[in-house]
Design a protein around this nucleic acid. Structure first.
Lengths: 196, 196
DNA sequence: CCTACCGATCGGTAGG
DNA sequence: CCTACCGATCGGTAGG
């Protein structure tokens, strides 16, 4: 790991704990046992660190979305694949996900716009998946936007919830979340058609 | 509206747009057309504004949860009532909800702890509701924690999504969200039992 | 509600 | 990687 990579790793932890704006370059330097000025031999600004973290995650998601889109499968299977990728990245890199969610707003304008484009494209791909699922009769013909938003809300904030629990089995978590997102929580009375 | 209430109202807008840490007392003063020092005739610190916003929302939710708990109804009806209250507050006060979600972390320690106690109690009440629903056979016997978290994630981030859409009908939104949270998104093959 | 000002801290640079 | 330092800005106070 290069010195630069170490800085970004430590920044991930601090930004996640306190938020980007609350962490000073002196805080970051102290956590690495050096002086603030020395950080600038490896990075050129504080915002550069934020951009690398946030855009790194955004491009990773984009790449995985391309992968899912290339699959030949029904909509439900594609949605499951998106959910799985989301959960995996959350388990592997919860700090980065938290920072994306909380601090993308503090990106400087060109990075800010770059991020928004990636995020919008990702959301559009997911929206298309849901729409096609409705056309195929696999997905309930409910409000597409609400379905999209509900799924993404759960997946995007998983990091904050996962953190409080002790080591949960990743596979079990995938199953539970997929089940709840796709099938809801209410018990279905299977024999309803026999009742008056 | 007192001058103090005006300050808090303007602060809500600014904090929501830029985040608590990014808004200086000078920014807030400028938005009110006065000097930073003058703010201190009405409030005693910047954190006091944050605390009032965040704890105000937290106590409001607590009060509504007490109301729901006092109802004599099945679990599904109680969950629907919680969802409705959440959506109503989001439509009425989206700025405050956004600030609670993003900036509660910047509360000073006594306010911080006060907030966490309220939030934990709220989550516990909702958890109990789900558990009782499972015992009664109304709710699927899935992972309670995941159900709880999934519901809350969607409800808590609704403000950010609602904002981007033009004026959506509140009642329609309640129906759509309730439907999707409780019943999921996958189409159910109703005649399954006739198939081989 | 203002002017004037405080000490602390910020991101970042110069120069070695 | 450090010392020394920059101008800007921060939350907040004194005194009117």
């Amino acid at each position: 790991m290069t010195r630069r990579e170490e800085i970004i790793k430590v920044a991930k932890t601090l930004f996640r704990e306190q938020g980007y704006k609350s962490v000073s370059m002196r805080d970051l330097a102290k956590a690495m046992d050096l002086k603030a000025a020395s950080l600038y031999n490896h990075i050129s600004s504080k915002e550069e660190i934020l951009a690398e973290i946030v855009l790194g995650v955004a491009y990773f998601f984009t790449k995985e979305m391309e992968l899912v889109k290339s699959l030949k499968a029904d909509s439900k299977t594609l949605l499951e694949a998106v959910i799985n990728h989301h959960i995996e990245l959350t388990l592997n890199n919860p700090e980065a996900i938290a920072i994306v969610n909380n601090d993308w707003i503090h990106l400087e304008s060109s990075h800010f716009e770059e991020f928004l484009e990636l995020r919008n494209a990702y959301e559009q791909d997911l929206r298309d998946m849901i729409s096609r699922g409705i056309e195929a009769g696999e997905i309930m013909p409910n409000n597409t936007e609400v379905m999209l938003f509900s799924m993404l809300s759960t997946l995007r904030t998983l990091h904050s919830w996962y953190r409080r629990r002790s080591g949960i089995d990743g596979e079990a978590l995938k199953n539970d979340i997929t089940e709840i997102l796709l099938n809801g929580i209410v018990a279905k009375p299977l024999k309803k058609i026999y009742q008056p």
